[in-house]
């Protein structure tokens, strides 16, 4: 049985490497494939992008475990690089957490993050969030750690406490989560560059994630600056979703209003380029390799 040990090992190496890892948040398999071709070393399957691509809905806890698992599998099947996944709140109590971890790990994910929001959750940069008592996520992290079958299936804690309780509470919670078994730490929505630096200083030896959302609560910093602060990896979780929505709107507006795509076509990938992108040539070659003619020759060679 395939156990994806090579993907977990590769991901762990990327996380613990001194160079910061920029992970591509892919809303679907096509985006993941393009990310891989562009040179990204790992893909992140996140709730905001998946909620948008799967349901056309905001990240408000409507997307469920089964839908995330399905998207995760589609993306894992499409690429050869490690895939890290958003486990939201674990979708229930600690028993749900155990099942979520087991299923994501079996599906081939390289790691998961779990957060302390009240379900149904909200995107970390939306107003009106609330968090559960810290002990609740600590118990979930402990369960996640016990439920994983491989120690290199990395677990990251996420706290959303900054918005309601302030930075110190978010740091204290994260230390508790780390003590409970989290390998990596993510404090959502710090509100300034100074806060980002404070977080990095509080967790000098722990892999830390920075979340760069266009128009979000955290200032957008260049990757190099985050690396210098001590962050291990960074994501831009809404970039592709916003770009896709922008392109969809522009093309559909022209099509709807004018009945053609002349203006927006200049921004499109061409027919041939797209076919190249999704590997049409290699797929056609593969089909030829196993077609009747070479197979008849092979049969003849075998002497049948």
């Amino acid at each position: 049985m395939r156990d994806y040990s090579e993907k977990r090992a590769a991901f762990k190496h990327l996380i613990y490497d001194s160079k910061i890892l920029s992970m591509a948040v892919a809303p679907d398999a096509l985006a993941a494939k393009i990310a891989e071709q562009t040179g990204f070393k790992a893909v992140f399957v996140a709730g905001y992008a998946t909620s948008a691509s799967t349901l056309g809905l905001p990240d408000r806890g409507i997307l469920d475990f089964g839908q995330m698992l399905q998207k995760l599998k589609e993306i894992i099947d499409a690429v050869n690089i490690p895939v890290f996944v958003d486990g939201d709140t674990g979708y229930g109590d600690i028993e749900n957490v155990a099942r979520t971890v087991r299923c994501y790990e079996a599906a081939g994910a390289a790691g998961i993050f779990l957060e302390d929001q009240v379900w149904p959750k909200r995107c970390g940069h939306m107003a009106g969030k609330s968090v559960v008592p810290a002990a609740e996520l600590a118990a979930k992290i402990k369960m996640a750690s016990a439920a994983r079958r491989h120690d290199d299936f990395l677990i990251m804690s996420r706290t959303d406490a900054r918005q309601m309780n302030g930075l110190q509470n978010a740091i204290d919670r994260s230390k508790l989560y780390q003590h409970s078994g989290a390998d990596m730490v993510f404090i959502e929505a710090p509100q300034s560059k100074a806060e980002l630096a404070t977080i990095a200083a509080e967790f000098p030896d722990t892999p830390l994630m920075a979340n760069m959302i266009e128009d979000g609560a955290t200032p957008m910093l260049p990757i190099e600056e985050l690396e210098a602060m001590g962050y291990s990896f960074v994501v831009h979780p809404t970039a592709l979703t916003y770009a896709n929505a922008y392109a969809d709107k522009a093309v559909l507006k022209e099509l709807h209003d004018l009945g053609r795509t002349d203006k927006t076509k200049q921004h499109m990938v061409t027919f041939n380029d797209f076919n190249q992108l999704v590997g049409l040539d290699s797929l056609n070659d593969l089909e030829k390799r196993y077609s009747a003619q070479p197979m008849a020759a092979m049969i003849n060679e075998i002497g049948l």
Binding site: R2, K73, G108, L283, L286, E287, Y290, S291
Partner: peptide, 16 residues
């Protein structure tokens, strides 16, 4: 066809 078989087998293996 054989092309489908190629991708099907990969998927079945990926699923364990």
């Amino acid at each position: 066809n054989p092309l489908n078989t190629f991708y099907s087998v990969k998927a079945m293996e990926n699923h364990g």
